[in-house]
Design a protein around this nucleic acid. Sequence first.
DNA 1: CGGATGATGTCAATCGATTGCATTCGATCC
DNA 2: GGATCGAATGCAATCGATTGACATCATCCG
Lengths: 347, 347
Amino acid sequence: MVATMKRVNMRALADSIGVDRATISRALSTDKAHLVAPATRDLIRAAAAAAGYRADLMAATLRRGRSDTVGILVSDMMNEVLVRVMREIVTDLNRDQTRGQELTPLIAETGDGSGHIGHFLRTFLSRRVDAIICLSATEDDAEALQAAAREVPVVLAVRSISAIDLPSATCDDGAGGALVARHFLAHHHRVVCQIQGPQTATTFRNRAAGFSVVCREAGVRELSIGTSARAAISSEGRAVAEAILATPDRPTAVFAHNDSMALGFIEAMRHQGLAYPDDIAIVGFNNTELSRVLARPMSTVEYPVAKVSGHAADLVRALIKNREFSWESKSFDPQLVDRGTGVKRPA
Amino acid sequence: MVATMKRVNMRALADSIGVDRATISRALSTDKAHLVAPATRDLIRAAAAAAGYRADLMAATLRRGRSDTVGILVSDMMNEVLVRVMREIVTDLNRDQTRGQELTPLIAETGDGSGHIGHFLRTFLSRRVDAIICLSATEDDAEALQAAAREVPVVLAVRSISAIDLPSATCDDGAGGALVARHFLAHHHRVVCQIQGPQTATTFRNRAAGFSVVCREAGVRELSIGTSARAAISSEGRAVAEAILATPDRPTAVFAHNDSMALGFIEAMRHQGLAYPDDIAIVGFNNTELSRVLARPMSTVEYPVAKVSGHAADLVRALIKNREFSWESKSFDPQLVDRGTGVKRPA
DNA sequence: CGGATGATGTCAATCGATTGCATTCGATCC
DNA sequence: GGATCGAATGCAATCGATTGACATCATCCG
């Protein structure tokens, strides 16, 4: 037998105190509480607490036309960077702002296959979210996002897309690639190579381009041997790594577009009896836990999680307050975390 | 300038087709569509699609008293097991059931500090979730969960709590510990040791107990040297590991309560010039990515993610359909993934 | 042919909170 | 003392969809 308690609604509470529902609504709100006499307000608040009254936010949303809710789309909840950004956006949105404006997140994992996004966007809109944040959008999603943006503000984070112009907060991946290239330069590497992520993602294209430009300008030789992995995961990284190690003309330093693929490279090295990191220098990307907990921690590029999520949250808040807000997309510089795996082996 | 489109509501749609809102509501529903003449139904559906009509689920929820929404509490979105369970629960809840009953998840990350749970539960209840799933509840949360359970079904997953009797889906951690102990036995280890997670969590207490019982019965000597980590993370695991390695009387096999702590142990071994896994056998728990991508993959215990999440989803669905459903808590056996790091070094 | 039956639809109440407007009442001002 | 003002509160419409009760109409049966 389950003890089902019927919830108290505003009407019941009103009857029990002998005061109008309107007064209760005002007394319990943040912005209209000043319209109620202090004595009444305290009385109401006490009674509400005693009765265990809890406002029905669905009803409130219906009347207000605003739900204090933000939809968050994330492609993969196992992706450390995405999760960290998402988590920071969420805490940021809940941070007690000027006025107790709390924004509850609605999170949906879309999976990487494209085309699903439309479904989740529709669900969000049906639930009357005040805004939508899309982490890791792909170009395929442009149309669906565009449509959603006609109804509520849509903010992109981590990955922006070129087809449409939406407010975004991203990492300057080109700068990240350049950072690694210059690191290799500083350590006198003359023959380098990349393990690229799938080039369908702008993220990886930018990392690749940023790296290559610096190499070209400095006259460093960049090998291009089967450099693009089919997916940004360690097994694919290992496949690329094996192709690289199979060439007679080995690079002295390798830039992996993320830490997982870097790990694949390390495995491949070990498998071939090469010593990590002494025989071939390697630098990853993202500063994931993986890179830190390796027996020998790996140099990597730190993703500007706090800045990206902070800007995304700012955009959302500003746009909710004012749809016409003249927003600015921002891209933040990543930083190299030098753990020494990028140095050149003394000849 | 933002192109703000006003949404079409049911009234507008009704006026445009010249049919009552009630008919539209029925035509678009799954369960009452049969009450509408096929011709009218098709007409309405076509018109709705053409007008881009999307039902306001807040209004529907208000009227129905049911939101088709499930609140999910998760303590840490970086925890691989929790995320995997959560993800499977979500896809399971959305699986097109008997009748297109889709349950949208509301996800909240609670963080490990206790006491916050009440806040999230209240938010969920205010948003009128039909049920709540709590992953990784702690004993401190008992009261808050109990209160919530008076209003909607509450299901525990991954971690159940002893203070109250709620439907739950868990892993049989005692069996997991025993599994590892027997594995060590089979490989003729006679002196073993555990790196335990914080004993405030039943999960770890059960793993510890299951392991110890088997050891005791088999007459295997279990060392107890500073065996409990303050947190189930690699750095803490390493601290415990160092204490273990510092004793003159070393175990030949170590059971770490999760893979992170096992990794800490491996680091400590390397630091002391010991070869992993030859010098001391080690087995972890959870079969996380970490354990698989190690240069030398580690034996570990596979968490029955699919079974736990499947049962949790079943419980939720059944209880939403019928509050009085006579539920059954279930605990599922984990499995040993033998990658050879638990064998005894040939003397 | 009258009335029962069933298939389709319409009407209007309802869910619970919010808010513009009206009302009340005491205080203040001329 | 009557008008005016402002503070505090009540009244009632509203948000958008759902659903029980009822109306309409064709059909069918005895």
